[in-house]
Simulated scan of single mutants.
Amino acid sequence: MWNKIPAFLKNKYLLVILMFIVWLTFFDRNNFISQVRYGRILNKQRQQMEFYKSEILKDSTALNELMTDSLSLEKFAREKYLMKKNNEDVYLIVKDKDNKEN
């Protein structure tokens, strides 16, 4: 019976190493599959962090420009909040999303 088993399967060190690899791959709390998944999540979080840093930089420069330049503040108020001077009229043109011809 023992003669039919290949010699490399009789090696107790190899069997322990194989069992250890199987344990780390599937059963351990910090297994290899979870580590790969956590690495992907970490990369996605880093990309989001870089995106938000660039957005913060862009918004802070725009805010600085609004605080220092009165012409840009007036332009922003007119475009964003539709503010106007006392002697002028503002016309708002809204385009239909459903512009189907029947």
Rank of each mutant, 00 (worst) to 15 (best):
Q35W: 08
N3L: 15
S60Q: 09
I17M: 05
R37V: 02
V22S: 05
F26P: 00
L14I: 12
S70P: 06
K85Y: 08
Q48S: 05
D59W: 10
E65G: 02
K12F: 04
G39D: 09
S34M: 11
E74K: 05
Y13D: 08
I33R: 01
E55I: 07
S70G: 06
T25F: 12
F8I: 05
V90I: 15
I5R: 01
W2M: 10
I41G: 05
F32D: 01
R37H: 07
D89N: 08
D89K: 08
T25S: 04
R78M: 15
I5W: 03
L14Y: 08
M83D: 13
V22M: 12
N86E: 13
L57I: 12
D69W: 04
E88F: 12
N102L: 14
N30G: 09
D89G: 04
L9S: 06
L71M: 11
T25W: 06
Y81N: 00
R29V: 15
K80I: 08
D59N: 06
K58V: 03
K10F: 03
V94E: 13
L18H: 03
M83I: 14
E101W: 13
L66R: 00
Q48A: 13
Q35R: 05
D89S: 12
N99L: 15
L18Y: 09
V16I: 09
N64L: 12
Q35M: 10
N99W: 13
N30S: 12
N11G: 04
T25H: 06
I93Q: 08
M49P: 00
M49L: 11
D69Q: 11
I5S: 04
K10D: 01
R29C: 08
F20R: 00
V36W: 07
K12V: 03
E101D: 14
F20W: 03
K85P: 03
K44S: 13
L18A: 09
L73Q: 06
Q47N: 07
K75H: 10
I56W: 10
S54T: 06
E74Q: 12
I33D: 04
W23E: 05
V22I: 13
L92K: 01
I56G: 06
K80T: 14
G39Q: 06
L73D: 03
R46N: 09
Q47F: 14
K10T: 01
L92N: 04
M83L: 15
M67I: 09
K75T: 13
E79Y: 11
D89P: 00
Q48M: 10
K85V: 10
L42W: 07
K58F: 15
P6D: 02
I17A: 10
K53G: 11
N3F: 14
E65Q: 08
N11D: 14
V22W: 07
I17L: 14
I93W: 10
E74T: 04
R37L: 09
N64R: 02
E88G: 09
M19S: 09
F27H: 02
Y91L: 13
L14F: 12
D28G: 02
K4R: 07
S60P: 02
A7M: 06
L9D: 05
E74Y: 09
K100E: 14
M19W: 03
L24V: 02
Y38R: 01
D98H: 13
P6G: 07
N11T: 00
K4P: 03
D59K: 04
N3P: 01
A62P: 00
